[in-house]
Design a protein around this nucleic acid. Structure first.
Lengths: 161, 161
DNA sequence: CGCGTCGGGTTGATGTGTCAACCCGGCGCG
DNA sequence: CGCGCCGGGTTGACACATCAACCCGACGCG
C-alpha cells in the first residue's frame, strides 16, 4: 500500500545501502568495544579527546565543542564516567570544574584504541581502498558544509565556535 | 599526551569527516522529522515498513527482520507507538498479534515522507552527485559484506534469515 | 546600587535502547 | 506420555539522550 512519494529506484537503493553500512559498521564497532573493554562509544569519544589533549584535562565546554554534544548530555555522561572511575572532576578555579582523565581511564583507552583502529581499517578504510576513500572524504566534507550553510540561513541551533 | 596508536594522517582525517557527516546528517534529518511531524526516526522506520507492505499489516518478526532491530527494542517501541495511536496490535491468529498501521499512522507517514525524501536528496544525493553516489553504494555493500563474512566465521549474533 | 541577561554547568522528567530473564505453544524424542 | 528445547514475544531493570528549567557568577547599564 501507499508506495509514497519517496526516492526513486537507484537513489533509494544506494541510500539504503548507506544506511545499512552505517548501522552494521556502528554496531560491530560498538559491540566489540563494549564486550572487550567495557566501554561505550560515548565513553571512548570522551577518553579520546581527553587523552589527545596536552595535559589530560579539559573544561567541559571544550569537550562539548569537540564532541558536538549538548551540554546536558555531556554533564550526565561525565557524572556516570566519574562514578566508574574513568575521569575525575577537579574544582580548581573556583567554580568551573576541570575534567581529568584518571589512570584507569588512560589505561582503558590505551588498551582499546589499537583494537578499535584496527577494526576501522579492516572493515572500512581497506574495503574502500585509497581512491574511493579519498572521494568519500571530500564528499563528506561537502555534505557537512551544505547542511551548515543551510542552517546558517534559517536557524541558530548549531554551536558554532 | 598519549597520542595512542591510532589511524594515521589521512586515514584519520577522512574517518573523522565521515563521522562528522554521519552525525550532522542524522541530527539534521531527525530534528526536522521531530519538529515538523512529531515522529522519531524509529517511528518513521516502522511506518515506512508497514506502509510498504501490501496490507499495512505485518508480524513483529517481519518488522524485526527488515529493520534489523532486536526483538525487545521492537516490542517496547511498538507499545509506545500504539499508545500514541500510530499502530494497533490485532490478535487475530490466537497468539501472535499482527501489527497494523492506523489511519493516523498512515497520515503521518504520507505527510512526512516527501519532506524527508527531499532533504535526503538535497543534502546527500545531490551533493554527492551521480558518480560519487554510485561509488558509495558499491563500497557500502562491500563493507557490509566484509563485516558479515567476518561475523559468519566467528560469531552467531546476527539474525540471518 | 538594582536589575537584566548571558554563558557555563547541573538537575529532573521523560523517551528510547539494551540486556537478561521469562512466558508459552509447538516439536522432537526418550 | 513426559520432558527439553526452540522460536516469537513480553517484561523489568538499567544505561543513555533530550528537553526544559534552574543555579550562579560576570558583565552591562539605568
Amino acid at each position: 500500500m501507499s508506495k509514497g512519494p519517496w526516492l526513486d529506484g537507484d537513489e533509494q537503493k544506494v541510500w539504503r545501502s548507506y544506511l545499512l553500512m552505517r548501522k552494521t559498521l556502528e554496531t560491530h564497532l560498538e559491540r566489540h568495544l563494549q564486550r572487550e573493554f567495557g566501554l561505550s562509544k560515548s565513553d571512548f569519544e570522551i577518553l579520546v579527546n581527553l587523552s589527545e589533549s596536552e595535559s589530560g584535562r579539559m573544561r567541559a565546554f571544550e569537550l562539548s565543542r569537540s564532541t558536538q554534544w549538548e551540554k546536558s548530555r555531556l554533564s550526565h555522561h561525565l557524572t556516570r564516567m566519574e562514578k566508574r572511575g574513568l575521569i575525575r572532576k577537579e574544582a580548581c578555579d573556583a567554580r568551573y570544574p576541570e575534567i581529568v582523565i584518571t589512570d584507569e581511564g588512560l589505561r582503558a583507552i590505551r588498551d582499546s584504541a589499537p583494537a578499535q583502529a584496527a577494526r576501522v581499517r579492516e572493515f572500512f578504510v581497506d574495503v574502500f581502498g585509497p581512491e574511493r576513500f579519498a572521494v568519500l572524504g571530500e564528499a563528506a566534507d561537502e555534505v557537512v558544509a551544505a547542511i551548515e550553510k543551510h542552517c546558517d540561513t534559517d536557524c541558530s541551533l548549531v554551536d558554532r565556535s
